[in-house]
Design a protein around this nucleic acid. Structure first.
Lengths: 300, 300
DNA sequence: AAAATGTTTTTTCACGATAAAAGACATTAT
DNA sequence: ATAATGTCTTTTATCGTGAAAAAACATTTT
């Protein structure tokens, strides 16, 4: 089973949604750009759509014959890439009870448990190692460093350093820069969310990421921009395991963001610094409070 | 040829040197710790030493029969790990003429050129990607970002941020901390080197790395400590390709280090900050001046 | 002639297999 | 009883292989 065709399946599903919206299909290369896949994959998609009677396809003419039904879609779980599957399994283990710092990580065992080849697991671990949660012993196993309080403090220390610098760079950007329009858009989204926070509070995490990434990008430094991947990963799982007071926390954070945005728009470095610090401080508090009790202690 | 036995060969060579120095061999587990390999490998080494008449081996008794000859050693090139081989080949290509930013990197081609499997090349590229010089296009090739002036500036920006913070943390360390003794030792090594700089200037780069790593470790932040890997890698190759004025540059750097060390020992944060900034500024200049002319321009 | 479609080649991704190396367990010597 | 040696098992490192997906090339359509 050398390689799953999840790219095809995922693109197929997205293409179905597109078809449902527009009731028509563009040329093959255009569709490829739209879906982010090669023409080879586009043609596989079109072939199947033809077979299942969704469209009539003859060279350039693509006629939509019927509206997609739920059965036309591939099951969601078949559209995930192997990397996503491995990450999920690994994080579940990591956040489960009994995942103590210092523990060994066994590639073969992980691979067997998840039901994938060892190569994929190895590659995942190498990629994952940059998050600072695991470490490799040369010619030997990986060691889990654990999601400890120390980890959270080290992570937030860097985050604060980077974001303060990025925010300072942000206000120095010329008025013509596209970021100001982006900021305007994000402000509007924040206002919308704030007004319906009671019901939509769970949409915050996605907005949060987009907002902070916009700021980090102003640094024009690849190391700062890339570091946000570490933060995003941690916060992604943080939001999954810590649901306590979520609504209240997010309501506060939205207001902090709005104050932060106002400071940025004022272009007053002092105000920006203050608003940024305030928000980062409460973000750190939130993260620290979510660390499971058993993981508070760091090994010697 | 599924796996080379370079671990064994390298450990064997190191064991020969050990034997030459001490004229005796400890127990198997002890030897394993000493060489950083498992007992399995230790036993392979001892077997060969017995076969080639270097020692007589019967259970606990290991008698040295003769002094190692040059022919007893495995050739140096057989002791390199695959990762090292790939890294060297890759860097040679990267620093060679014609390695323009934006260029595609082909795993298969690289693997064929170096004469290794694609898996090893893939793993290398994933590991290497954290240095910020290459980037992966999803489901597709890698793109070379190039060793440009922009890269050097982004790298040094982070370096300066991290080192200033680490140096500040350093002076706050209690007098009992072992770092002060380490610093003392490094100071002495610097003095030695300074007095013989005319002939030993090429030993500076190794000392430089140890000195800066000591300072970065004071941050007690894994992200800062790990980032030094990026700097070390760049400087490692930088020292290889930029030999212009090397003696003079290193002489200056040694003096800057000595001033920096004096500032640290004074425990005066202001002095430390000044000495650190001064040194980092000239380090940045050196790095910038070494960027080949053809790579100064960054693509849009 | 520009842009699409049709066809072929190349590359990436993932697996199972195998030797090297590590690690675990059993036995023996001090 | 501790620490070594002897033996066996498991894991890691690496390759070759094959299907999925991308990319390149050739041909047709507008």
């Amino acid at each position: 089973m050398s390689k799953s065709n999840n790219v095809y399946k995922d693109a197929f599903n997205r293409c179905l949604r597109l078809l449902d919206e527009t009731k028509s299909l563009p040329s093959e290369p255009e569709l490829g750009t739209l879906l982010g896949v090669s023409r080879t994959t586009v043609r596989s998609i079109l072939s199947r759509m033809e077979e299942t009677g969704l469209i009539a396809w003859n060279k350039r003419s693509k006629t939509v014959l019927r509206v997609p039904k739920p059965e036309d879609f591939f099951p969601e779980e078949e559209t995930d890439s192997l990397a996503e599957i491995i990450e999920r399994s690994f994080m579940r283990r990591l956040l489960a009870e009994g995942a103590e710092a210092g523990m060994q990580i066994n590639e073969l065992e992980l691979a067997r448990e998840i039901g994938v080849g060892t190569t994929s697991v190895r590659e995942f671990l190498i990629r994952f190692s940059r998050f600072g949660l695991i470490e490799k012993r040369r010619n030997s196993h990986w060691v889990l460093k654990g999601f400890t309080r120390a980890f959270a403090l080290e992570l937030t220390e860097i985050r604060e350093m980077f974001e303060l610098r990025s925010a300072a760079a942000f206000v120095a950007l010329p008025q013509e820069s596209a970021v100001w329009a982006d900021l305007e858009g994000l402000e509007e989204e924040h206002r919308q969310l704030a007004s319906e926070i009671a019901t939509r509070f769970n949409e915050f995490s996605e907005l949060d990421e987009r907002f902070h990434r916009l700021i980090h990008r102003a640094s024009h430094n690849r190391f700062i921009v890339d570091f946000y991947d570490v933060i995003a990963m941690i916060f992604h799982y943080h939001y999954q395991w810590n649901k306590a007071e979520e609504r209240q926390r997010n309501a506060v954070a939205v207001q902090e963001h709005l104050a932060y945005i106002a400071a940025l728009k004022s272009r007053d470095p002092g105000k920006v610094d203050a608003a940024c610090r305030k928000h980062l401080k409460s973000a750190r508090q939130t993260l620290l409070s979510s660390i499971p009790a058993g993981r508070q202690v760091q090994p010697a």
